[in-house]
Amino acid sequence: MACIDPDGTLTPLGLLLLKGLAEQPMPPEDVAKHLGEPLFRVRGSLRELTGADLIEEEGGLYHLTEVGQSKL
């Protein structure tokens, strides 16, 4: 997986995403600029992290859940 390994650990990209969103909630476009990653990759990664309950979306902005914060 792009952000979470099969054993549940975060990949470097997953960790970068969580750290970025810990600084401030962002829409996917801003995450892409912040990380210098293409938007399609960020969208896929945000979906994966959302599915793992590490982040959630509210009003177009993604932010960390308590579970997500515990991973940092």
Binding site: C3, F40, R47
Partner: peptide
């Protein structure tokens, strides 16, 4: 190879 992707992830490009 970049994880699960949807075609719609590429919208805008």
């Amino acid at each position: 190879t970049f994880g699960t992707l949807k075609l719609e992830d590429f919208k805008g490009s």
